[in-house]
Design a protein around this nucleic acid. Structure first.
Lengths: 159, 159
DNA sequence: TTTTTAGTTCAAAATTTAATGAACTTAACA
DNA sequence: TGTTAAGTTCATTAAATTTTGAACTAAAAA
């Protein structure tokens, strides 16, 4: 197992725990445990890229789990890969867009909830205006947030 | 079952679907299906408050599911309740703080991820600075978002 | 004082979600 | 040309999460 030996060189003591811990925090941002682990691994391994089999070996996980996780992370552009001429394997690396991607997804969710809230307010009878007022406060919060985030996203884009 | 009859008066046609749909969007903000449904129900039912048994009846759900959901929503202050003298039951209502609460939780998560990212950068060898640069961009993004959210929270607070 | 109402608690069942294993494809290599 | 390496796909399994049911408490009502 030469791959394992290389890992042992590249992954220092305490690293495995740090990777697990970081992975669990990525979960709070909507990733599955394996997706979170992969993000944490690539960020922490010395080399800037990780290969498929390196991940399989390091996590002792199934190829399918690694494969589907990598593909999800690529689909949302949290990772990408490079190739080397006449080699089939891919070298996966993290992008710098993690928060941009997360907040764009959040913006979509806020938009969706806001629309349903508008519908709710429009459906409510006039009898108890205090409920509509609260929902309008939700919407107002959502609007301020949307605007603010939109602003930040524009700033980050030109970082 | 007089409660059901009242519901039929208070919950108009199309409402049940609208509540289910809204509940599913609340799930995207980290609530369980039942927690989301309850939020949606209270927001949509004509009366500003809902009772425990009203929820059990409307969703044909178990008392325990309603109980634990209500207690979670109260623990994070997405709902609250009032009482009436010489009555035991509670009248649950939504607060206006949904987004404030959500954003505050998000702020905690960002803070936590940022700290682990700092640790990651500090642990990395100097050999491949491009990875640290990307992680520092995550952190930079996190900082900008934090600031922005903080701003939003201040605005929301004084609404 | 007994019954009913309004919940709570927690072990077990049901559901959902994530991970696995096995069979497959295709590119590089010997 | 055959073998190995690098993945993919998908049905099944395993694990985590949510919901239920049953047994309970304690306040109000009869």
């Amino acid at each position: 197992m030469p791959a394992l030996k290389i890992d042992q060189l590249m992954i220092r003591k305490g690293m495995r725990e740090h990777i697990e811990e970081t992975g669990r925090v990525f979960e709070k941002f909507g990733l599955t445990p394996m997706q979170g682990r992969i993000m944490a691994y690539i960020a922490n391994s010395d080399r800037p890229e990780a290969t498929f089999s390196e991940l399989v070996d390091f996590f002792r996980a199934s190829k399918s789990s690694i494969s589907t996780s990598l593909n999800y992370l690529m689909s949302v552009k949290m990772i990408d890969y490079k190739t080397r001429a006449s080699e089939r394997r891919k070298y996966f690396f993290i992008t710098d867009g993690f928060f941009r991607i997360y907040f764009m997804q959040l913006l979509d969710n806020i938009q969706e909830l806001k629309e349903l809230c508008y519908k709710t307010v429009s459906m409510r009878s006039a009898e108890y205006p205090e409920v509509s007022e609260k929902i309008l406060k939700w919407i107002e919060g959502a609007n301020i947030f949307e605007e603010s985030i939109q602003n930040v996203l524009n700033n980050i884009k030109r970082l």
